[in-house]
């Protein structure tokens, strides 16, 4: 397990010692340790309960609490087979298609905005032109628009095209039953934050490296591919992880743009359906929920450093 790292830049060794040691002493008491242990246990138990329930036989789950496994252990993987492959609960083919949909939505919805936003960020930082600052500020300011503001018109556009009066500007794109609307929506909604974050990083790349490449006659396209992308890899990784988890965990965009069918709907949509109508078959619902959270948990525990950095960048820090 890696550790949760400082969200800010690496600590400067030249700086004087910080206060944590002093604060530490000032608040030191055994009560504090007990408080921390209680909080940590409270924070962990809910997920453990879910995991334990998902591997208990259906009969046990319905009759006794999951904590009784510690006195009467009895385990099975039947629930996972059932929820993944068996056509139950008003859906044919179990949860496997939804798992595939989640991957098929989240991977392109990460790569598309990553590529387009890093290009835009490079242009705004290094191909400076009249108005580039204004454009950057406008994009930066657009972060204030909640995506709820765009849902209805965007759905109307994807379903029926765009018209002014009776003049058709964009014909109905006929994208029903494909991933395209949800890819596009995620890409569009990711743009302001992605450009802002990547711009902050790319703008700080060493000026002399860029200028040397230009003197050698490299085009902006070559500089972008051979210098900027490799150097910006840490920022790209942080944003990629943030965006992947965001799209993987998203319910609102998926529900709005792809609906609830097994053709295109992701795990989150299926889970919310299951919780609504079949909340009583807990062994199946918990197995399904665990399948949906295991991917983020793997990402979290294996790439924790980037994960924390990406998440914090996504919410407060630049």
């Amino acid at each position: 397990m890696t550790t949760v790292e400082e969200p800010t830049a690496a600590p400067d060794p030249a700086q004087p010692a910080t206060s944590s040691g002093k604060v530490r002493k000032a608040f030191s008491s055994p009560l504090a340790s007990i408080f921390m242990i209680v909080v940590t246990v409270l924070w962990t138990i809910p997920t453990i309960g879910l995991l334990v329930t998902s591997v208990r036989p259906a009969g046990d789950v319905a009759l006794t609490g999951w904590w009784t496994v510690f006195t009467h252990p009895s385990f099975t993987l039947e629930n996972y087979h059932k929820v993944l492959f068996e056509s139950s609960f008003g859906s044919s083919g179990g949860m496997l298609p939804y798992l595939v949909n989640s991957l098929a939505i989240a991977i392109p919805a990460t790569i598309f905005p990553l590529a387009l936003a890093s290009m835009a960020a490079y242009a705004l930082a290094w191909v400076r032109f009249k108005g580039s600052d204004t454009i950057f500020f406008a994009i930066f300011a657009l972060q204030i628009v909640p995506l709820q503001m765009a849902l209805i018109p965007l759905l109307q556009l994807f379903n029926g095209g765009a018209h002014i009066g009776s003049v058709t500007i964009i014909p109905a794109p006929n994208l029903g039953g494909t991933y395209v609307p949800v890819w596009l929506a995620h890409t569009m909604f990711a743009m302001p934050l992605a450009i802002f974050l990547l711009h902050n990083f790319i703008a700080q790349l060493p000026r002399d490296v860029m200028e040397a490449a230009q003197v050698d006659g490299a085009s902006h396209f070559k500089i972008f591919r051979t210098i900027v992308l490799p150097l910006a890899a840490p920022a790209l990784a942080s944003f990629a992880i943030f965006q992947f988890l965001w799209t993987w965990n998203d319910l609102l965009v998926a529900l709005t743009f792809v609906g609830g069918t097994a053709d295109v709907a992701p795990l989150t949509v299926r889970l919310s359906q299951m919780a609504g109508s079949f909340g009583r078959s807990w062994e199946v619902v918990t197995a399904g929920a665990f399948i949906s959270i295991v991917v983020p948990l793997i990402v979290f525990f294996s790439l924790q450093r980037y994960f924390v950095r990406g998440l914090l960048a996504g919410s407060v820090k630049g």
Binding site: V4, W43, T44, T47, L245, A275, I293, L297
Partner: peptide, 17 residues
């Protein structure tokens, strides 16, 4: 790590938990 972990879980997953 353990206290931060729920941040990785979707709100739907957390709701089911």
């Amino acid at each position: 790590s353990l206290i931060f972990m729920p941040m990785a879980i979707s709100f739907v997953g957390a709701s089911i938990i």
